[in-house]
Structures are given as C-alpha cells and as structure tokens.
Write a protein that binds this DNA or RNA. Sequence first.
DNA 1: TGACGTCAAGATCCG
DNA 2: CGGATCTTGACGTCA
Length: 426
Amino acid sequence: MNNRRNIGYACITHGLANVEIKTCRLKNAAYSNLLKIIKNNLDALKTAIEYNAKNNIYLFRISSDIIPFASHPKVLIKWSKHFDKELKDIGKQIERYGVRVSMHPGQYTVLNSQDSDVVCRSIEEIRYHTYFLDCLGVDESNKVILHVGGIYGDKSKAIKRFIINFNKLDDSIKKRLIIENDDVNYNVEDVLYISTELNVPVVFDNLHHKINISESDKSISEWILACNKTWDKKDGAQKIHYAQQHLQKSKGAHSNTILINEFRDFFYDLPNIDLDIMLEVKDKNLSTIKCILCTSQNTKISRLQNEWAKYKYYVLGKYPKGYYEIRELLKDKESDLTDDFYSIIEKARLSESLVSNEINAAQHVFGYFKHCVTAAEKTRFLKALDSYKEGTTQLINVKKALERLAKKYQIEYLLNSYYFIDTKFK
DNA sequence: TGACGTCAAGATCCG
DNA sequence: CGGATCTTGACGTCA
C-alpha cells in the first residue's frame, strides 16, 4: 500500500511548554487584554506547528479560541491588521513544513436555524474561521468543518434551509467549507445528499456514524469511498475523523486515548486512496504519535526513545513493572519494538494507580527541584505527599504542585513530559 | 428551565 | 498568602 496517510489531532498539544491557548470572559475582552491573549495564542500556534512538524504530524486543527470572541459584535479589534506579520509567518511555516491545518466552529454555530439572528451570527462565526485561514495565506485545501445543524421537526425543510443559507455565503467562504455527519441529526447519507446539492466535500466521522447510522447498508470502507467522490483535486486529500467511544461516558464522548489494536483494525481496512485522518481524542498528540509510529515501517529507535523520555515518570507511577520492561526493551537497538513499547504504555494508561508507586514516582520528579526549591516549597510538597498517602488529597494535586514547580523553575525536561497528562482530563 | 459539551477563567473557600 | 475546589461562561437546541 503506498497511499498517503496523514494522522493529526485537534487544537491542544499536551506535554509541551508554551502551547496553551488562552481565552477570557466577554467582560474582560477589552482591547489591551485581547491583544495580549492573541499575541500569546499566535506564539503558541507557532510553537505547536513546529512541534508537529518535528514529530511528523502534518495534520492539525487550529482552536476556534485562537482569536477569542472574534465574531462577537461587541469585539471590534482589528486583529488581522495588528498581527499581519505574525499570521503570514505562521502561514509560511505551515507551507514550508507541509502541514495541513483546519478549523471547526463549535456545535453552537447553526447555519440552518429557524432564527434569523442565529443564522446571522453563525455566518459571522463561519466567516471568522475561513478568514483566519485566509490571513495565514494557506490554500483552500486547508478547510473549515461544519455540521449541518438542527432538525426543528422537519428534516427536509431544515436541509433546504441549510442549502439556501449555504448558497448565500461568499465564494471566499464556500471554497473552504466541508460538512460532516453528526451523532444526532444528520447521518452520512443525509450529508452526502446535501453535498450533491452544494458540491461540497464530506468528512466521514466513524464514531458519529456508529451512533447515527444510515439506512443504506454499507461498510465503513464503502462510505469513505462514497465520500471520496465529493472531494475535488483543489480540496486536497480526503479527510476523515476517527474517534473511539469513552467507555465510562455518554454516547459519542471521545476516549482518553486511542486503543491501538482497535485503530489498526480500522486503519488496515481503509480503502486504497490517500486519506488524512483527524483523531478526536483527549490525549491529542500522544495518541497521534502512537498511531503514526504503530502504522509506519521501520520506526527509528530514537523516536521511541524520545517518547519514552516523556512517558517514563508517568509509567513509573502507574505501572512500575512496565517501566522496567520498557527499559529492557529499548536496549535492543536492532528490532522494531514499537508495538511492544505501546502495548506496555497502554497497560500503564489503563492501570489503577497504587499509592506507594505514585509516591515513588513523585519523589523522583521532585528530585529535579532538590537544589533549587525554597524550604517552604519543600515542606509544602512533602505535606501534599503525606496527604496523598493518608488519602486526604488526590494524586492530581501532588502532580499539580510538581507542575507548578516545573513552571516556576523552568525545568525543560519536566515541562516536556507526559507525567502531568492525567491532571488535564478525567 | 435545565441538560447537553467544552474547558479555562474566575470565584470562593480553606489552612 | 498560596493552593484546592467549586462555579461560571458562551453558545443553540430540544425535551
């Protein structure tokens, strides 16, 4: 198989310093504050793109929060003028690295609403997303993904309204838009129908499809091929979304991590065409790198070593046995160890923490600060550790304390570690 | 009216 | 005061 397979992730990069996208409340969206936030966010985007390219990640969704309240009538800041140079720089960098970017307005952007105000605001929101990409100067294969919207008791009328409103959009907006099947209202067959009316590419989302199945009986592969017909050369390679169900949460909720065996089954069943696969998963770049490495041939040992440097304290805390197994594994410089490596990482991810093991790992991590922390900081840390031992505080607070110290003392190694990953989501 | 989803911001509480 | 924990925000739809 020599089809191109790019795998990417959405918006947030974990285990990397200076990539946080900041936002604010509407009441704090005054000029000077917004200026500061946008500057921070563009710097963060630049850093994330560089990281992605370095890790062979060529597909990335830019957060809608990159310009907070960009389409809000009360916010009048001329961000595109103010940051013209920064935006162009990022665009050039994206092109140089061969990265493809996208954006995705949230579920509250509803082009087919019955309320004309909602439609107007939605158009402004869509305009902002496409305009942001225009400002980067990236070509029209860099897309903005839309859902169709609500049903309002009459699906065919709602579809008609979507088509009418879509047609009203400027060509400069339309050329970037693509539409996706959702988990409640519009299944892939509905979206394909709309696509034939509008000549707009369709993104197939596997989890939405599983939950909101179409009447026609087709395999995943056949649906993807049906969607492929909606993609023109100027649109770039066909995009699909891939997600796994979070087992403890409601239907459609994304999993914390992509289970690699399940992903492999999907991946090796894909039709014989170029595809860009956007992962929708909580741990973002972690799963992306896992999926890339596990589906590549001849993964260099150095890439596993890089990942191991980031994972090791996490694994030491969660699953010490795996820590020693991986250390042994990586001594073998000849064989391809990727699958073994990630099978142990997944075991660690799925393990329940044992207090004594986590304390050991936390003490290892604290070792980085031994010579720089103040006496008060040391006492505070030891106290947190004791509380954790006694069960009066949770591990997450111990890790947050360590993360604060890592930020304060700028310990690169820890700032670039996955040790803190489970403080970010449940 | 409140749940839905998202996640950081912001508020409040505690020692 | 720092830090832990709870609540709010911003959005539209639908029961």
